[in-house]
Structures are given as structure tokens and as C-alpha cells.
């Protein structure tokens, strides 16, 4: 097998099974995300959405299957990927300024021994401007609100100028204004030709925010353009028992879905 395999697909997953304590939590996932889309991964709690992203990034080892990023194994494509973990996964009382955290996005690219210099600091300011946080560069991160923390995390991903962005629940626990700003920002990234993959929890907004949809519930339920995938049958298959919820959803979303 050659090194390059499916190079025209931003994220290609084949037969991926991931286990937690020897029990599979993701079953035989086949997934293709084309370049230049803004994709959502949705599914009920425990569907394995975060696990899927982590497995794609090589953070949890698969039991079976493999992943290609623009045709390359993940280890060789790290420079082309940026990852925004869930905000709660870190201690925000860590002694660092906003700019420090954004610069951390470059640590992998800089390689061993090199320290961020003037050029990197300028890039950090540019990334902060993109998320509207340039005035906060010297603030300690312990003084940020939840929405500001999220924007700093996104700036840390933007500074990497990656072709493929993975975000784990970036809209969780932020206010409506921040949510709109984040969505606009991510859409701008997509319009600039990048691929954006978001774990999303809010079915109400899926159709408005995204153009590609992956429905997951330990297996892939459906994947493709939102208009084709966002159907009642698929929602039923993915969300099973939560029929009442889907009922209200359909009435809310049918006009534009």
C-alpha cells in the first residue's frame, strides 16, 4: 500500500473500531469528510462523538481500522490539523496569559528547543484579532469568562493555520453572542477553503450552522450534505427513544430543513 491513500478527502476513516476497557464504543466507522465543508458530528450522549475525534487525532488507540488525513497517516499530517478540546478539560487557573495560550498552538510546529520569537508573537496577535480578543492578550486566563476562554482556545487553533480543524463542543456553555461570533468565524474559515469538523450538541441549530452532517450513535447512522441527512428517519435511528424531543424539533426546523 502506498503512503498516499484517498488524498482528495480531508478526513478518511475506514473500518474504525475503538474500545474502552475492551468494550467497543465505536463500531466499524466508515467516514469521509470532503475538503472545504463545515461538518457537524451529532448524536445522543454516549454516542462516541468526542471519542471519534480523539481516535481520528490518534489520541485514543483504535482496535481496528485506520485514518487518513489528506491521504496521509495522522502522524505525518499533524501540521495540517488543529484541535480544540473541550474547554473544561484544562485548569483555567493555570498561570498563563491569553497570548501564552495562543502561542502554545505553535509549539508542535516549532519543534524541539526553538522558542516562540517576534514573528510567532505577531501571529498570536493576529489570531487574537480574528476572535476579537486582541485587547486581552496580556490578561491572565483565570480572569476570562467562559465565552472568552472558548475564543482563546479557538485562536490557539487558528494560529496553526491548519487545513483541517477539529472542535469538541465549542458552543457548549457560551452565551448567544459568543456562539454567533464563533459560528461566523468558523464559516469564514470554511469559505477560505479550510475544513471544519465540529462536535455539536444542539440539534436545533444544525441545519443553520453546518453544510455537512455526520450522525453517530456508536455506528455511523448517516453522513452527507445536511439537506440529505437531516431527516426524521435518520434522527429516529440516531436518537432512538427521544421521540418527544424530535417531535418538537421537526416542527421547529422543517421550514428551512
Amino acid at each position: 500500500m502506498t503512503d498516499l491513500h484517498e488524498p482528495h478527502i480531508a478526513c478518511h476513516v475506514e473500518d474504525l473500531t475503538v474500545s474502552y476497557r475492551e468494550r467497543p464504543v465505536l463500531w466499524d466507522i466508515d467516514l469521509d469528510i470532503p475538503p472545504g465543508v463545515m461538518a457537524a458530528i451529532v448524536g445522543p450522549n454516549g454516542a462516541g462523538k468526542s471519542t471519534l475525534i480523539k481516535a481520528v487525532l490518534g489520541l485514543v488507540p483504535p482496535v481496528a481500522g485506520h485514518v487518513r488525513i489528506f491521504g496521509l497517516p495522522v502522524a505525518k499530517a499533524r501540521r495540517r490539523i488543529a484541535y480544540v478540546p473541550q474547554r473544561q478539560s484544562v485548569d483555567w487557573d493555570f498561570p498563563a496569559t491569553v497570548r501564552d495560550v495562543v502561542l502554545m498552538g505553535l509549539y508542535g510546529q516549532l519543534g524541539w528547543l526553538r522558542r516562540p520569537g517576534r514573528a510567532e508573537k505577531a501571529r498570536a496577535m493576529a489570531a487574537l484579532e480574528q476572535v476579537g480578543m486582541q485587547d486581552y492578550a496580556a490578561r491572565p486566563i483565570s480572569q476570562l469568562s467562559g465565552g472568552q476562554q472558548q475564543r482563546v482556545f479557538i485562536a490557539r487553533a487558528l494560529i496553526q493555520e491548519a487545513d483541517l480543524l477539529f472542535l469538541d463542543e465549542p458552543m457548549a456553555g457560551v452565551d448567544a453572542v459568543t456562539e454567533a461570533a464563533i459560528v461566523a468565524l468558523l464559516k469564514a474559515q470554511r469559505d477560505a477553503g479550510r475544513t471544519v469538523v465540529v462536535v455539536h450538541h444542539d440539534l436545533q441549530t444544525v441545519a443553520r450552522y453546518f453544510d455537512w452532517l455526520v450522525m453517530l450513535n456508536q455506528r455511523i447512522i448517516a453522513q452527507g450534505p445536511v439537506a440529505e441527512v437531516y431527516t426524521e428517519a435518520n434522527l429516529r435511528a440516531a436518537y432512538g427513544g427521544q421521540l418527544a424531543l424530535i417531535g418538537t424539533l421537526r416542527t421547529a426546523e422543517t421550514p428551512d430543513a
Binding site: 490539523i81 478540546p85 484544562v90 485548569d91 502554545m104 509549539y107 508542535g108 490557539r156
Partner: peptide, 21 residues
């Protein structure tokens, strides 16, 4: 010598691993 790597690992292990450390 490993200052920035230790900093990143102490703050955010997941991001450090995603960057290939």
C-alpha cells in the same frame, strides 16, 4: 531545554498529544 513542552503538557495534555508531543 524542554521548557515549552513541559508548559504545554502541564496545561493541556490532550492538545500536547494532538500536536504530536
Amino acid at each position: 531545554l524542554l521548557w515549552k513542552e513541559f508548559q504545554l503538557v502541564a496545561f493541556d495534555r490532550e492538545a500536547a498529544r494532538a500536536q504530536g508531543l
